[in-house]
Design a protein around this nucleic acid. Structure first.
Lengths: 183, 183
DNA sequence: TTAACTGTACCGTCTGGACGGTACAGTTAA
DNA sequence: TTAACTGTACCGTCCAGACGGTACAGTTAA
């Protein structure tokens, strides 16, 4: 029988959200412990109370990624429009919780964070399997790469946000292309 | 006529190559002045003799990108197989000088280096124009995104290098997809 | 019932190291 | 002779992480 939490750990989620936001907006380099603590409205000491080091923050962020991704894979498999069309539409930046962790994780993979790279590779495989079931094994990769290209462009063109409008217009062209590839 | 160099500036190119290599292999964060100088086999003083600061190194790297890219655009426009197929085939990592600067530049864009992002956006536009001339305006973006997705995957899956073999096998599937989209 | 105690949730400061950059004196080779 | 270096010493800043302390909610035993 433990002494029950005295107060709710409000700072914990705030820190994680701040870490995610900084990764998205400015990349790994800008996501220093100080910057994260400041954005979260928490002292640096408070941050380190919850996460003994930066690696621990990353680990919990990757857990969040796994959780949200599992949900999305279910939705993708069950999508009435088909997994491929669902995938393309969801590849455009929409500021959903999944989009946010995914981009944050990409920022970590970019700087060669090994564990993150491993997880991301697993994600790609999961997507590919569902795409293959929808459009066939030979056209699965073309579709996968189209979606990835969408993400890639959104991220390069000054982080996600600005370019949303421009890219959103491309989605229909991509969905049309996917229909043409199907079979 | 120029002012009679006593010795050839061998260190200059070596430094630039080392900077490029570190960006590719480990990202911007690892490409410190000390690390670049060490890999180039040059003293830190020697590095700073040629490049007064890091920004100057980046500027010269972007010049290299522009030069190699201009050559590649010519080849792409003149490709007998068509610009689109050429683009897809050249989107896979092949360790060419252009591939190297391009990935290095991507690393800089990732960490929100403004000038690099501007240049990369220009690159995308150039490619898009040639693709549109080949496969039509509506299918240009799907093709562009496929190529970008190829790059994206090569870079995420543990930096460029390892995954070359796996991705090379995908190229034919993509080229086939492009043929299906054409018209 | 309440004083003593326990564990959680923080805050603020400090330290050691890395990094970008400066300065400058000496060395080498065309 | 002069450009192209090497090497070292140094500065200011920033960062990850350690540390000591505080506030307080819940638990327990007299």
């Amino acid at each position: 029988m433990m002494g029950a939490m005295a107060r709710k750990p409000v700072a914990r989620e705030a820190v994680l959200d701040a870490f995610e936001s900084l990764l998205i907006a400015e990349g790994e380099r800008a996501a220093t412990l100080d910057a994260v603590a400041r954005l979260a409205g928490v002292s640096k000491g408070g941050l380190l109370y919850h996460f003994p080091n930066k690696e621990a923050m990353i680990a919990v962020l990757l857990e969040r990624l796994d959780r949200l991704l599992a949900e999305d894979l279910d939705a993708m498999a069950a999508a009435p429009e088909g997994a491929a069309a669902y995938f393309i539409r969801s590849s455009v930046w929409a500021d959903t919780p999944l989009d946010r962790v995914f981009v944050a994780a990409t920022r970590l993979a970019e700087v060669a964070h090994a564990e993150t790279q491993r997880r991301m590779a697993g994600v790609q495989e999961s997507w590919l399997a569902l795409l293959a079931a929808d459009v066939g094994p030979t056209m699965a990769k073309p579709v996968l790469y189209m979606g990835d290209g969408l993400y890639f462009n959104a991220m390069l063109a000054r982080g996600p946000g600005e370019t949303t409008v421009g890219l959103a217009g491309d989605v229909e062209a991509l969905v049309a292309a996917v229909e043409r590839l199907r079979g």
